[in-house]
C-alpha cells in the first residue's frame, strides 16, 4: 500500500513538473509561433497568386476575407457568412444567414473592422451577437476572394483533412471557374522520405491547371510519373512546354508518390472535397447576394 502511494505521488509530481515546463515554454513561444505562421501564410498567399520572392504586388489587387460559420439554434442548423462590405474604417461586414437548402434567411450589418475580424475572439463575439440569442455558432472556415480592379481573379481556400498520420493543412488557389491555380502544403506530419514528399513540387504541381470538371472525378494512379512529365513538373523545361504538359495531363488522374499511396490519396481527395464544396457554396452565396441585392466588396 505504501509503495502504491509513493508511486502515485511521485508519478503525479513528475507529470506536473513536465507539464509546467511544457506550459511555460508554450507561453513564451506561442506569440512568436503565431507570428511566424501568419508571415508564412501571407507569403504563401502571394506565391500562390504568382508573386514569388517579393515581386511587386499591383495596387489594384485586393484581398477580401469571407468567414463562414455554422449556426445551431434548437434543432435547426443554418450557415452564416461574414462578408466584407468594402475596404476602409467604417465599412464593416455584412452578416448573411442561409438555410441548408440554400434559401435566404436574414442579413444585417455588423460593425466590425477588417483588422478586428482577424482576431478570432472578437470576430466570434460579433458573429454571435448578429446571429441573435439562443443560437450557438461555430467557426467553419475562411476564404479569401482576390480581385483586380474590382473583377474577381482568384479564390484562396484553406483546408484541413486527415492524412496518413495526422491532419494535413493546405492552402489552394483557384480561378473564378474553380480550376486550380496552385496548391501549397502548410503543415503536415507525414513520414519523411515517403508521405512527406507531398510538399515536393513534382507532386503539388500535378494539381495545377486541373479544371473543375476533371477535379470532380479525380483519383490517383499507382504508376511512375513519365520522365518527360516529371521534368515539366519540376520546372526544368521552358514555360511553353510546361503549359503543353499541363494541357495534356489536365484531365488525367494524379500520379501517386512511390510508397505513399495513402498520403497521395488523402491530398487528392482533400483537394477534391475542398474545391467541389466551395464551388457549391459560392454559387449559393452569390445567388443570394444577387437576389437580395446586397452590396459587398467583391
Amino acid at each position: 500500500m505504501k509503495n502504491i502511494i509513493t508511486i502515485v505521488v511521485r508519478l503525479t509530481l513528475s507529470c506536473l513538473l513536465a507539464a509546467s515546463v511544457m506550459g511555460i515554454c508554450f507561453i513564451f513561444t506561442s506569440n512568436a509561433k503565431k507570428h511566424n505562421e501568419h508571415v508564412q501564410e501571407q507569403r504563401v498567399i502571394y506565391e500562390l497568386l504568382g508573386y514569388k520572392g517579393g515581386a511587386k504586388i499591383p495596387d489594384s489587387m485586393a484581398l477580401h476575407e469571407v468567414y463562414r460559420y455554422v449556426i445551431t439554434g434548437g434543432d435547426k442548423q443554418s450557415i452564416g457568412y461574414l462578408v466584407p462590405q468594402g475596404h476602409g474604417k467604417d465599412k464593416g461586414f455584412l452578416f448573411v444567414n442561409i438555410d441548408l437548402t440554400g434559401g435566404f434567411l436574414a442579413s444585417k450589418n455588423v460593425a466590425l473592422s477588417e483588422s478586428e475580424a482577424l482576431d478570432p475572439k472578437i470576430r466570434d463575439k460579433a458573429f454571435e451577437q448578429a446571429a441573435g440569442p439562443g443560437h450557438t455558432v461555430k467557426f467553419a472556415d475562411q476564404t479569401i476572394v482576390v480581385t483586380d480592379s474590382g473583377a474577381r481573379i482568384a479564390y484562396l481556400l484553406g483546408g484541413k483533412f486527415q492524412g496518413f498520420k495526422t491532419f494535413i493543412n493546405v492552402m489552394l488557389a483557384v480561378d473564378p471557374g474553380f480550376a486550380i491555380l496552385g496548391l501549397e502544403v502548410l503543415e503536415h506530419e507525414e513520414d519523411p522520405g515517403l508521405g512527406a514528399e507531398i510538399d515536393q513540387d513534382y507532386f503539388k504541381n500535378q494539381f495545377k491547371g486541373k479544371p473543375f470538371e476533371a477535379l470532380k472525378a479525380i483519383d490517383v494512379v499507382k504508376a511512375p510519373i513519365p520522365s518527360d512529365y516529371l521534368q515539366a513538373l519540376n520546372g526544368k523545361v521552358s514555360e511553353e512546354d510546361i503549359m503543353k504538359f499541363r494541357e495534356q495531363y489536365k484531365g488525367k488522374d494524379v500520379y501517386a508518390l512511390t510508397g505513399a499511396t495513402i498520403s497521395s490519396k488523402a491530398v487528392t481527395e482533400g483537394v477534391k472535397g475542398i474545391v467541389t464544396k466551395f464551388g457549391y457554396r459560392l454559387n449559393v452565396l452569390d445567388k443570394i447576394l444577387k437576389e437580395q441585392q446586397l452590396a459587398v466588396s467583391f
Binding site: C15, M22, F26, T29, S30, N31, N36, Q40
Partner: peptide
C-alpha cells in the same frame, strides 16, 4: 518517456517560434 516527450515538445516549440 515523460522526459523525452517534454524535451521533444520544448524543442519543437522553440524551433517553431525562433527558427522558422
Amino acid at each position: 518517456t515523460l522526459t523525452i516527450a517534454t524535451w521533444v515538445t520544448v524543442i519543437d516549440l522553440v524551433l517553431a517560434a525562433y527558427l522558422p
